[in-house]
């Protein structure tokens, strides 16, 4: 009952060894293909689930009363010096015990599609970034004076920052927090070395400078599927509109 091929393929010792090596190599090739599939698609399943959870977390957190009667941010500044040394109180009224892995807001980029929206997590560890774009701890909060720095995967884990290479100067990046839509406009795109941490400084490239503008910086790997460089998208805060006033112009397509 054994099919013929299982019998006729038996040969000399040498043949058997060659055959075993061949089968091993074919198997290895298949495994490598499977790994590509795992990286490009299977990892996305995890991120999709994590994003669903994070968005629920945000919705629940935003639906509950604000932690403090917030001085609702009404600044429409696109930067400008802080008046008389008073730091602009644009620190959003997020509950200020944000733990790594918690959602802090939603990033929307109209250029990448009307439905483009990812929950941003706090932290940029490997585990954090599996859940979605991550906010560098210690950098500015959304809309805050300084540099709001986010990193995200470009090809794996749902590839939230896949389309970053398509962004051009003037494109809108909207950060949705509990009370506010912060609209940034892209001011520059660049490819830098992975060690160039200057881009994440409050004033990029100037370690000692005191920040006066509310900036955003998105980083991801560049070129796609490579880790040789980082793609850097820089932006400047254009407006901070209360959510009670409806969608910001950048999201309504106006």
């Amino acid at each position: 009952m054994t099919p013929d091929f299982a019998v006729v393929t038996r040969g000399s010792r040498t043949n058997q060894v060659i055959r075993a090596v061949g089968e091993l190599l074919i198997t290895l090739g298949v495994v490598v293909f499977l790994f590509i599939g795992y990286e490009l698609w299977f990892t996305g399943l995890y991120t999709a689930q994590a994003q669903t959870d994070l968005k629920h977390q945000l919705a629940a957190s935003w639906a509950s009363p604000a932690p403090a009667p917030s001085a609702s941010p009404t600044l429409t500044a696109s930067g400008g010096p802080a008046p008389s040394g008073v730091p602009i109180a644009s620190a959003p009224a997020v509950a200020h015990v944000t733990l790594p892995g918690d959602a802090i807001g939603i990033i929307r980029i109209p250029h990448l599609g009307a439905n483009y929206g990812y929950a941003i997590v706090e932290g940029v560890s490997t585990d954090d970034l599996k859940k979605g774009p991550g906010h560098y701890p210690g950098t500015a909060d959304p809309g805050g004076i300084g540099n709001f720095v986010i990193s995200g995967h470009r090809t794996t884990y749902l590839a939230p920052f896949n389309g970053l290479g398509d962004l051009v100067v003037g494109d809108a990046i909207v950060i949705e927090t509990r009370d506010t839509y912060y609209t940034y406009r892209v001011t520059n795109t660049a490819s830098v070395l992975p060690t160039d941490i200057g881009v994440a400084l409050p004033v990029p490239g100037e370690p000692r400078a005191k920040p006066t503008h509310a900036l955003i910086t998105l980083t991801t790997c560049n070129p796609k599927y490579s880790a040789s460089h980082r793609l850097i998208i820089s932006g400047l805060l254009e407006s901070a509109l209360p959510k009670s006033a409806g969608l910001p112009p950048a999201l309504t397509g106006a």
């Binding site: 490997t126 970034l129 470009r154 992975p194 060690t195 941490i197 880790a227």
Partner: peptide, 12 residues
């Protein structure tokens, strides 16, 4: 190839 951050231990 999953490295997307600009990295240095001193960033914080």
């Amino acid at each position: 190839w999953n490295e997307v951050t600009v990295n240095s231990p001193s960033i914080e």
